[in-house]
Computed example of a mutant assay.
Amino acid sequence: MRFEHLGTVPRVHAEAVVAPTAVISGDVTVSVGCQILHGAVITSEGSPITIGEHTIVMENAIIRASAVHAAHIGSHVLVGPMASVSGAVVDDEVYLATGSRVVNGAHVGRGSLVRTNAVVHLRTVVPENTVVPLGWVAIGDPVQLLPADEAEAISAVHAELDFPGFVFGLDRSAPDYMVQLTERYGAALARHALDRRVDG
């Protein structure tokens, strides 16, 4: 299913294959030879998404761009089932395994492997040909690779990266932080009420 969002219609190359249950919304470019499988969601929330040649987005994967963070997926990339990329850059020939996450402002270098359930965190730069181990967290620039059970070390770097400030422009210490977040984000998402299906 393809939807016009904020006046922009997805551009899907004639030699790309999109499953009928996949959703592509807004300013999205899908290049030649791509395969977008069942249940995948590719949604632009105000910034563009580009997907390079011969990239595969598997079942129930999510690729999204926010109003301030575009998303770019390079060529010959495999985005595994239930993986997600949000407002980040993924270079060519990267494998994002099942359930992996790449968060806003991150950059995954060419030829890297982000294994099952691993996370590439906010504003993190993963150099070329890096392996992020199964369930581990890549965080920071320069990157640190940490097992998920090192929560204290991850939290220390995470605090410096300021997720709510970077992604939502909010101060987490504000007493009404969640009120501000849900109302602001909800208002932005409500723009989908005006979306129009463009593929019949």
Rank of each mutant, 00 (worst) to 15 (best):
V30H: 04
S31K: 05
S31T: 07
V32W: 00
Q35N: 10
I36N: 01
L37R: 01
H38W: 10
A40M: 04
A40C: 15
A40Y: 01
I42T: 08
T43K: 15
E45T: 10
G46M: 04
G46K: 08
S47F: 06
G52M: 02
G52Q: 05
E53V: 01
T55N: 03
T55K: 02
T55D: 02
M58A: 10
A61V: 02
I63N: 00
R64E: 09
R64F: 08
A65L: 10
A65Q: 04
A65C: 07
A67Y: 08
A67K: 13
A67I: 05
A67H: 14
V68T: 15
V68M: 13
H69D: 08
A71W: 03
A71G: 03
H72E: 12
I73S: 01
G74D: 00
H76D: 05
H76F: 00
V77L: 03
G80P: 08
G80F: 03
G80T: 01
M82G: 06
M82Q: 09
S84P: 09
S84F: 09
S86L: 14
G87P: 05
A88H: 12
A88Q: 06
D92C: 08
V94A: 13
V94F: 08
A97G: 13
A97T: 05
T98V: 11
G99E: 11
R101Y: 14
R101D: 14
R101V: 12
V102N: 01
G105L: 03
H107A: 12
V108L: 15
G109V: 12
R110V: 02
G111N: 10
G111E: 02
G111Y: 02
S112M: 06
S112G: 12
V114R: 07
V114Q: 08
R115Q: 14
T116Y: 13
